[in-house]
Simulated scan of single mutants.
Amino acid sequence: MANAQCLCGALSLKLRETSKLIVACHCLACQRRTGSPFGLGVFHAIDTVEISGTATEFIRVGDSGRKVRCYFCPTCGSTVYWKPDALPSLIGVAVGALGDPSFPAPAFSTFERSKHHWVHVDEAVEHFQTSGLQRGT
């Protein structure tokens, strides 16, 4: 079992199962959400995650037209998790919120059409120019 939390610790998640669905997303929304050249998330079955604390919800519309609900700590502002309407049974958790430098590398690299030219992702990772989670894109 792993735990994720915001910077101040007021918002936390208990992850009761491990997941191999680790995604580096280079879309402009993830870049702006994280303040980094890409977002790194691990997706868990929603019923295996226990959320503690109060979160503020921000809803954005993705390139697909579907909503992504982002949840962040109202005290420190850290994004901890999100729920994409395109994947209703999953919850995305910010890998940085886990505070684990030994966390595995991503299995997918999505929205590489907006990837910074100096970011290099291992060739063993599946690469997609748009969303790789809805196969064929």
Rank of each mutant, 00 (worst) to 15 (best):
A2T: 07
G9S: 11
S12R: 15
S12P: 00
S12Y: 04
L13R: 02
K14Y: 01
K14P: 01
E17M: 05
E17N: 10
E17I: 03
E17L: 11
S19T: 14
S19I: 06
S19W: 10
K20C: 10
I22Y: 08
I22W: 08
V23F: 12
V23C: 11
A24R: 01
H26Q: 09
L28I: 07
C30R: 05
R32S: 11
S36R: 09
S36I: 02
S36G: 01
G39S: 11
H44P: 00
D47R: 03
D47C: 01
E50V: 15
I51G: 02
G53V: 01
G53R: 06
T56V: 08
T56L: 00
E57V: 09
I59W: 05
R60T: 13
D63V: 04
S64K: 10
R66A: 14
K67C: 12
F72A: 13
P74Y: 13
T75W: 08
S78Q: 15
T79N: 13
Y81Q: 12
W82H: 13
P84N: 14
P84L: 08
A86V: 05
S89L: 13
G92C: 15
A94Q: 15
L98W: 12
L98P: 14
L98F: 09
P101A: 11
S102F: 04
F103N: 03
F103V: 05
P104S: 07
A105C: 05
A105Q: 14
P106R: 00
A107H: 01
A107S: 09
F108D: 01
K115G: 03
H117Q: 13
D122F: 02
A124N: 07
E126V: 06
F128G: 01
T130I: 03
G132K: 05
G132H: 12
L133N: 04
G136T: 09
T137W: 09
